[in-house]
Design a binder for these strands. Sequence first.
DNA 1: CACTTGACCTGTCCGC
DNA 2: TGCGGACAGGTCAAGT
Length: 293
Amino acid sequence: MPELPEVETVRRGLTDLLVGHTITQVTYDWAKSFPGEDPAVRRFVVGAKIVSVGRRAKVLLVNLSTNYTLVIHLKMTGQMVYRGEHGDFGAGHPSKSLTGQLPDSSTRVIFTLDNATLFFNDQRKFGWIKVVPTPAVAEMPFIASVGPEPLDKNFTFEVFKARLQRRQRSKIKTVLLDQTVIAGIGNIYSDEALFAARIHPAAPVNVLTEKQLQRLYTELLAVLRLSLEKGGSSDRTYVNAEGKKGSYLSFANVYRRKGAPCTRCGTPIERIVVTGRGTHICPQCQVLPGTDN
DNA sequence: CACTTGACCTGTCCGC
DNA sequence: TGCGGACAGGTCAAGT
């Protein structure tokens, strides 16, 4: 479930650890995870120096000196974990790491660097790495169609409102999860932002008042910023570039708290399904417009 | 076009 | 203890 705060945390970690270092070898054990047969790998990845690490929505962009980019999507269980040449610092901190000795059974791709090793682990194999000429990244369909970054300073309330207006009749949670509307929001932060703004996730956009939209905008940015500060959310498998968990979930009000008392009113949190997604609400604080309970 | 469902995968958890 | 099934949730493709 890496969403914007988790991917951004990984990006920052990789920037500190990788920039300036050279990829000397790449191995992989799952073809859908990495285009190992593509000649571009041998020509433009092996031997390349890492010049910067970027992010767009939930996608990591590792830019290489060859003017190629590793485009990485972690999907639900992907990890990019760095181990220095002195080896396994995760093992010394078992309570803070989800990864012990690497590689392990979830390791899909191994990047050998001049000074270290970088592991792409992905238990469920949904994630992927593509090798793309850097100027072509912007033309990749997902990148070309993705919405604005919510933590950019240009992302004002007016922009937020205008983006939502494209989907007036859709359920607000479904719209928040749509990457072409706003970049980087997934199940955790949509549930948390809607709770904080006291909006029912199944409410259609066009029934929301200006005041509710204002609250949603404010709370959405607040939960993203708080999570970034806490190093993201580690539900099951998420770890940062050093193999360590984030602590945001201990601040979550509804996500994965089914049955626990609402932090605002004490009512037990419920789990419902909205557009096929597990969704967490306080049935007291988040009332669907047009209903009385 | 808007919206929903299924596919992609594996590990965990729950009930019997 | 073992086993079946539900569940986790990001994105794309296919179906209604």
